[in-house]
């Protein structure tokens, strides 16, 4: 610790008439990967655009890489990269040409831009297809090209707005792994948004949760897991089996709820919270009932849970 924050906001507010996109947001973002989580309309994109100087806040202050967003937004835009959430690629240009051009628009000379474009396109995994017009790309390839242009000028911080949007599970994992590498291996600070907490906790060092434009929570990813602390169990069979297990576990003092085909177990009471005790208990109960255990894992924490929990705190 002790390093100055990469981003720091104080009372940041953005109201569109009656729509409160962001309200009194005070939060710090450090190096590494920071997840910005919130439901649709929570204010994630609004925050990023304010930090980039694309829209003006209604109130409050913010600094990015030590520069004030009011006074030095041009300097900020020189040092950061931005991957927007929506489509932003001209279809008749190849990724290679486009990334070179975008690197030049960030101030790199011709030769440097070419070299950087080749480098980042390789890092994001666009190979032969980089020479084809982007109009023919799959969603996964488009997301990679969008990411490449954000990295083209070797920024010190990137804003990635829903980089996994529209990706299938395999492509999603690839993208998340890449985001993790950008933060650790590349040494570029990352602010990445998603509406799924479970997705970001895999790669984030820190998670910020927004709800209706307000800060719900900001903490290290580890704290999130500890606070969530619940378990998910799935047994072979139908809802009948699921409910039999749930009832039996409830009798043994665990607080359970059905969630889809699974039983979600709240963080166990202190006497059961010791490492492994709850696990053993669940295994025993399932064995007693003659139920086949398909899955027993930590509850990766659903956003709704954070909201419920957070709501209680506020």
């Amino acid at each position: 610790m002790g390093a100055p924050p990469v981003i720091s906001t104080a009372g940041l507010t953005k109201h569109y008439g009656n729509v409160h996109a962001l309200t009194d947001l005070t939060v710090d973002v450090g190096p590494g990967v920071t997840g910005l989580v919130g439901a649709n309309g929570a204010g994630k994109s609004t925050l990023i655009k304010i930090l980039l100087g694309l829209i003006e806040p209604t109130g409050g202050r913010a600094q990015v890489l030590g520069h004030d967003i009011d006074a030095a937004s041009q300097e900020i835009r020189r040092l950061v990269g931005y991957m927007p959430e929506h489509d932003c690629l001209p279809p008749d240009v190849s990724a290679s040409d486009f990334v070179v051009h975008m690197a030049r628009m960030s101030g790199l000379g011709h030769a440097a831009a070419r070299e950087r474009a080749a480098d980042v396109l390789r890092h994001v995994g666009l190979d032969e297809e980089r020479y084809r017009p982007m109009g023919g790309y799959s969603t996964g390839m488009k997301q990679r090209a969008k990411l490449a242009q954000a990295l083209a000028h070797d920024p010190r911080l990137v804003f990635l707005d829903e980089p996994t949007n529209g990706l299938d599970p395999a492509a999603r994992n690839d993208m998340l792994r890449l985001v993790g590498r950008i933060g650790s291996e590349f040494g570029i600070a990352v602010l990445v948004t998603s509406h799924l907490l479970g997705e970001l906790e895999q790669v984030s060092d820190h998670v910020i949760v927004l709800d209706g434009g307000r800060l719900l929570r900001s903490s290290a990813t580890g704290d999130f897991l500890r606070r969530t602390g619940g378990l998910l169990v799935e047994v072979v069979g139908t809802e009948t089996e699921r409910d039999r297990l749930g009832e039996a576990l409830a009798q043994r003092g665990l607080v359970c709820r059905p969630r889809g085909t699974m039983v979600a177990i709240d963080p166990p009471a202190p006497e059961l919270a010791t490492e492994g005790v709850a696990h053993d208990l669940i295994r025993d109960v399932a064995a007693d009932l003659g139920l086949g255990l398909m899955r027993l894992e930590p509850d990766r924490g659903h956003l709704e849970d954070v909201f419920l929990e957070g709501g209680a705190h506020v």
């Binding site: 927007p84 932003c88 690629l89 628009m105």
Partner: peptide, 18 residues
């Protein structure tokens, strides 16, 4: 029209030139 229609204007806007 092109940069507005395909929204690549946003990528320019996020760079030093406003």
């Amino acid at each position: 029209s092109r940069d507005l229609r395909h929204r690549s204007i946003v990528l320019y806007a996020a760079r030093p030139l406003s």
